[in-house]
Computed example of a mutant assay.
Amino acid sequence: MSRSRAWAELLRLPALFTVPGDALSGAVAAGARPNARTLLAIGSSLCLYEAGMALNDWADRAEDAVERPHRPLPSGRIRPSSAFTAACALTAAGVALAARAGRPALAVAAPLAATVWAYDLALKHTPAGPFAMAAARGLDHLLGAAATTGRPREALPSAALLGTHTLAVTTVSRRETQGGTSLPPLAALAATAVLTRLVARGARGTTGETCAGAGVGTAAETAIATGIGTGRRTPAHVGADLTPAGTLRTTLAAAYAATAGRPYTHAALNPSPPLTQRAVGGGIRATIPLQAALAARAGSGLTALAIAALAPIGRKYAKKVSIT
């Protein structure tokens, strides 16, 4: 059990629940229903994500010996060679699964794998680090579109939104052990507000998009005000989409705003290491409602609900194993 827990900590297993939504939301963003090839994309994403987790701790083992001596590698519960071997095997498995899904999927998975390795081995501690992580999440979203339809370009707008969220979370995470500055969580807070507005508005061509003003809607406006902590409510837009599809979008956007915004606000007010770490955890967990909102924005309510159902499961296991 002790060895199993060590691997669960190394691979950050609760974070795995943030992965399937990438491919699922990417598939519907390309205008298709998830199919068997989408499942291959999800399998590929899971393998590449976990490869990145194992490689991350292998690359940071000297740093973790000072700042996080309880982690599996510096504590001696897992050998560095085992972590590196796992990273290699998981990368190979991820690329192989993408190849099974077709050439378009492989064409996305290959640069995704390269980005994961480049981030962990070279870019993490450079100014390019957050952008590399954002690119990886965006490519993972495109992987679902490429595997399902062979047309990943159609998912580029939603990939950019998902990548922006990841950029914000990663920027905050660079200070999670030191804290000391309010600027990253404040920037992440602003990004969350913008993303909430965009995903709640709906994509062009979805139900209710032709409403005058194309506003966020009262539910999302309230979520921004209460979840992000501005303390004020902005006026409700005329012509808000009150259809079932529009209500689902705004509800999921509100969930995203609350999940990410509250811990960002706390970290901005008190940028201590514990609150900064909570902000990172909140940002990671918020990936799921954001993916669900993107699926709803693309007009697939069932896929959105399926993605959203992963949130409480991930939250349950995050109480047992740290997500960061």
Rank of each mutant, 00 (worst) to 15 (best):
A245Y: 07
R103P: 00
G163S: 03
A87C: 12
A59M: 14
W58C: 12
A29F: 09
A190F: 09
Y49C: 06
A191H: 03
A62H: 08
V66E: 15
A114D: 09
F131N: 05
A136I: 00
L16P: 14
L252K: 12
A257T: 05
R71E: 07
A308N: 09
T126C: 13
A318P: 15
L156G: 00
A267E: 02
A15C: 11
L39Y: 08
T192L: 08
L183R: 10
L24M: 13
Q178P: 01
A257V: 10
P104G: 04
R71V: 07
I288K: 09
A200S: 11
R5W: 04
D60W: 04
T18V: 14
P34G: 07
L112W: 07
K316P: 05
S82L: 02
A23G: 05
A203W: 13
G180W: 03
E67Y: 14
Q178R: 13
R204H: 11
T192S: 04
S44W: 04
R249G: 15
T85E: 04
S158W: 01
R79W: 12
T276G: 06
A54E: 00
A236F: 10
A293P: 07
I307K: 01
V280K: 10
T243N: 03
Y256E: 01
Y317F: 15
A107I: 00
T171A: 13
A122G: 08
A32K: 07
V216F: 13
T287I: 11
M1E: 01
A105L: 02
V169Q: 03
L161H: 00
R71S: 07
A54P: 07
A41Q: 02
A135K: 00
T210L: 11
E176G: 01
G76T: 12
G94H: 02
P127S: 12
G138C: 05
A110W: 15
L305S: 06
R201W: 10
I78V: 11
I284H: 11
H125R: 15
V66R: 13
M53H: 12
Q178L: 06
R232A: 05
F17Q: 09
L290T: 09
E9F: 15
H70L: 08
L55H: 11
P111V: 15
S25C: 03
P34L: 00
T206W: 00
